[in-house]
Design a protein around this nucleic acid. Structure first.
Lengths: 167, 167
DNA sequence: GGGATATACTTGACTACACAACAATCTAGC
DNA sequence: GCTAGATTGTTGTGTAGTCAAGTATATCCC
């Protein structure tokens, strides 16, 4: 075995753990998302991103957010946001609103129907997500996992706080 | 505040951590994947799934795998695998092969060109992934993260071991 | 042997994104 | 005030995936 080969394998060895974490992040995300999406779609006709967008809107002042902020929070491109909101608007779950101070921005606003839809969906959704995690992790493990995942790019520490105000 | 509302919020409180972990998994995955995909696409013209598929093939006996097993490992649907392999086949990176014992299955086989492509891509890819994790986590934290993520559905404990045999 | 059921894969139609190019508006510097 | 550049959003086009339906083969059980 050449020295070059040896050095390659040594330098790679250090990355083993990271690659392992990466692969599991990929597969674990895919598996979880499939399950959660299926439930959300079947029960409420929403995609994960649509749900998350409405949730973000529901927590925003006046139930409205600039599209660019929505894109940031959801890790979507601007065009992705435009198209997702088009879909929600067709179903009258959100609406557009102009910004008085800046004619470039068009707010996305949660409609009453959208707020109702969100309330309707959130209980079963939260229960489903909770169950999926709680059958795999202890409470402290969930905390640890959340903390670690929060350091990933775009997963910003800010938590999406509890909805479902028993409405 | 009604008793009903109180009860709702209590029962929800327990799910807070799980929902938090879920949201961060979503966003963190999206952010990481975008970065990694961009690098892999720009430098080698491969998607993450294509890379992972070729990596799995390279570790399989005879460099071949049934499509259904590939689907399982990659958390893709059968049709997704068919289409991804179509793309790789057009570029001559994989090929089809029949199974002597079962006429239903068509193996995906890594071609020599595919193996070369994988070797070419893996070093920079592994380095990039390693860097992304190591700038955010200590080594033990990476271990913890990998262990926790490994419990998610589809993220099966089996690690994807180190390629890039300095070829 | 022969039909019912299960497994492996492909195809057609659709969806949810991405990227690139664009239009509109705002802001700064002169 | 005016131009240069940055910011916000939309649209055209492409792609990677999904689901539902279909084909082909294998297996099980009478």
């Amino acid at each position: 075995m050449s020295n070059q080969l040896l050095r390659d394998q040594e330098s790679q060895a250090g990355k083993r753990g990271a690659v392992d974490a990466w692969v599991r992040l990929l597969r674990g995300h895919a598996g979880m998302r499939r399950t959660v999406t299926a439930q959300l779609q079947a029960d409420h006709g929403l995609t994960v991103n649509e749900y998350e967008a409405m949730l973000l809107l529901s927590h925003a002042p006046d139930g409205r957010l600039r599209r660019v902020d929505l894109a940031d929070s959801l890790q979507l491109t601007p065009s992705g946001v435009t198209r997702m909101l088009d879909g929600l608007r067709e179903r009258a779950l959100v609406d557009k609103a102009e910004c008085p101070g800046d004619a470039r921005v068009t707010y996305a606003v949660l409609t009453d129907a959208g707020a109702a839809k969100l309330r309707e969906a959130s209980c079963s959704h939260i229960a489903a997500v909770g169950a999926l995690f709680e059958e795999r992790y202890s409470k402290p493990e969930i905390e640890t996992l959340a903390e670690l995942l929060g350091r990933l790019p775009g997963a910003g520490g800010e938590s999406s706080c509890t909805p479902c105000p028993s409405g």
